[in-house]
């Protein structure tokens, strides 16, 4: 399956995770890389549902597509909620700060960007597009 389209609701996080796991397996990613890719996509998909669709009172779809070539796996997550560029978000506060006093939040996008080799965002014709790219392990 190269494309999955699901409603933009929290119940769709699981089928999206399953799609990412399948793509990671096909690309031959190591366990750690596959986990981090799932985390990256899950964080952005969660934000789209909670802040893109729910907060704006809109409904819409989440669409995820995969593109696999000999060197890398790229996943594209697309939605039609209001424009939101994760890369423009401020980095989380000091990560050594006590859990007692630090602000909650900002960690999802940090984990996304940290978890993949390349993360890109674009807004095209009413669609947010988030691209997650990871290099495949070198062929033996």
């Amino acid at each position: 399956m190269d494309v999955l389209e699901v409603p933009g609701v929290l119940e769709s996080l699981q089928p999206i995770a399953d799609f990412v796991k399948e793509a990671s397996a096909e690309a031959g990613l190591e366990r750690r890389e596959a986990y981090r890719l799932r985390l990256a996509v899950d964080e952005i998909a969660t934000n789209v549902v909670l802040y893109g669709y729910e907060r704006s009172g809109q409904t819409g779809l989440l669409r995820i597509a995969k593109n696999l070539d000999s060197e890398r796996l790229t996943l594209c997550l697309e939605d039609t909620s209001p424009p939101y560029d994760p890369t423009a978000q401020a980095p989380p506060s000091d990560l050594s700060e006590s859990l007692e006093s630090r602000p909650i939040g900002g960690l999802g996008v940090f984990l996304t960007i940290q978890g993949v080799d390349d993360f890109r965002y674009e807004y095209v014709e009413g669609h947010n597009r988030n691209y997650f790219t990871v290099r495949r392990p070198a062929a033996v």
């Binding site: 985390l39 964080e43 859990l99 909650i104 939040g105 960690l107 999802g108 984990l111």
Partner: peptide
């Protein structure tokens, strides 16, 4: 599996 939503839970449990 634990996403940042899980971290948030851990933070609130800690507090």
């Amino acid at each position: 599996y634990m996403s940042s939503a899980g971290l948030r839970m851990m933070l609130l449990v800690y507090r």
